[in-house]
Design a protein around this nucleic acid. Sequence first.
DNA 1: CACGTCATGAAAGATATTTTCGCCCCGGCC
DNA 2: GGCCGGGGCGAAAATATCTTTCATGACGTG
Lengths: 315, 315
Amino acid sequence: MTNEVKESFGGAPGPAPAPPPPPAPAALAAKVRTLAPTMTRSMQRVAEAVADDPAGCAALTVTGLAELTGTSEATVVRTARLLGYPGYRDLRLALAGLAAQQQSGRAPAITTDIAVDDPIADVVAKLAYDEQQTLADTAAGLDTVQLTAAVNALAGARRTDVYGVGASGLVAQDLTQKLLRIGLLTHAHSDPHLAVTNAVQLRAGDVAIAVTHSGSTGDVIEPLRVAFEHGATTVAVTGRPDSPVTQYADYVLTTSTARESELRPAAMSSRTGQLLVVDCLFVGVAQRTYEAAAPALAASYEALAHRHRAVRRAP
Amino acid sequence: MTNEVKESFGGAPGPAPAPPPPPAPAALAAKVRTLAPTMTRSMQRVAEAVADDPAGCAALTVTGLAELTGTSEATVVRTARLLGYPGYRDLRLALAGLAAQQQSGRAPAITTDIAVDDPIADVVAKLAYDEQQTLADTAAGLDTVQLTAAVNALAGARRTDVYGVGASGLVAQDLTQKLLRIGLLTHAHSDPHLAVTNAVQLRAGDVAIAVTHSGSTGDVIEPLRVAFEHGATTVAVTGRPDSPVTQYADYVLTTSTARESELRPAAMSSRTGQLLVVDCLFVGVAQRTYEAAAPALAASYEALAHRHRAVRRAP
DNA sequence: CACGTCATGAAAGATATTTTCGCCCCGGCC
DNA sequence: GGCCGGGGCGAAAATATCTTTCATGACGTG
């Protein structure tokens, strides 16, 4: 049951009643000022209260607002009508919307750096904003040709090695976990010695992936070089497309670098972009090998199910 | 982002009438996704309608929404309650606010699921959009009170253990790496046996953190329970605030759940939110312990520099 | 197959909003 | 100065809307 305006004018009961000026969405303050002269004293008090603190008034019932302004419910409703709404209920709704708008309007300066004395809410907002930015930048900057090539290499690889140390090591492991799930023979290496030892085994048709933000992490470059020289297809996931690691990479996938600062170390922002790239690789491979990947994914869900306790509903 | 309920009545200004968590302001879509699993079928229909068209639903009464979704008024109210509002009236208000926000904001930019035959460029765009969404939702839904409490506990902890297996294990390691960098005695456990063995050592003043998307991973719950019973301060980072793991958690940090699908496993979307939470914890602690953290961070940079200058070799 | 549990909607009960109605203040007119 | 018409205004009735209770039936379990 929709809220019908139930005022039929004595004159012609027109077929289409009238789509009268739809209630003001946000131009409320203006309307209040415009109509103020037309209003009676009590109504002005109500209008003022409403324009003054939309959020607060939105939380009040007719009775509440009437008390607050020292008037009666009837007056409040009359004011709402004058402002162009069918009744108080709708004014209240508009009020809530207005409040939400002006609240979202004043962003907590999330563009600035994180400071030592930032309240935790700002920290959350800034970090989230930053990582979102990193994602957008990385997505925009990804070379789909290189990405496609890398995916194809992975999809047809006999085995795949992924190198990464430190924070990038976790990204390497993430990729490895995912690829293993869809049946690709993959191994992540964070021990430089073992990495090199294993890289020697690689040959044409195999794939080696190096994950390094700086692109100059020796521990990661070295195994990639070995793999490269042994004929494997090599991929670099780095934030620096001009860095040493790209010398030995057939394909380079560039991640965006958000600004970093004292409280926001490199590991934090680079990781987000790297993970996006890794996800793209995974999905790309899953698409290419769908016949095999789909059942494999389903199977891995199945296998995990029994390690999860039944989720209870509210006690 | 805190939406204060401000009821000021001329009458008795109660001492502290409502300390419970204020209703969500704009984090509604997030909440719907987070809580969807807990909902019954009918409630899900209501929640879906609400998340789908906030503006439209805001214009409906309880009865109207009940009819639209083919359910009853009672169910609609129950859903509103579950979403954290005192009743339908307040949900409606929030809905109006949300509608106003997204109208003033950018386009909804809804994306479809990733398909097997999507070109790689679409995959990149969709993944990036999805992860951005997850970040926004998680940030909006994070309880800053719990977060602050968790940060304080960490900052003063004698030692900290972090539990996580599978993809969440990587998140646990990420947090551990970061906290170690600023001098906190932290250890990540992915081996359930060792985790429990170590949890026994914890006592009051220590902190244990469990990272699990489902919240029902026994291998992670068990060590947290042990830590909890030994008096340690326990924190759960989970996408399911009603799951078993929260039984043993002093503080619960909820991550948002983006929709998942065959080609987009849970591990992918949950990880993004978890990492944001982890980053927030890290920065929070770094702020609190700035005196000690700043030099520690600088020192770790210094230590790494050596490994970057190295390797330089012509092919 | 019997039983308990739980989701669900119908209807009763409680609130909030809208309408009605008449008081009362104000100013003009006799 | 007193009488009369016109509104502004609020109290309370009337209505719409929201909330709670309760009985029912579906579903899964033992």
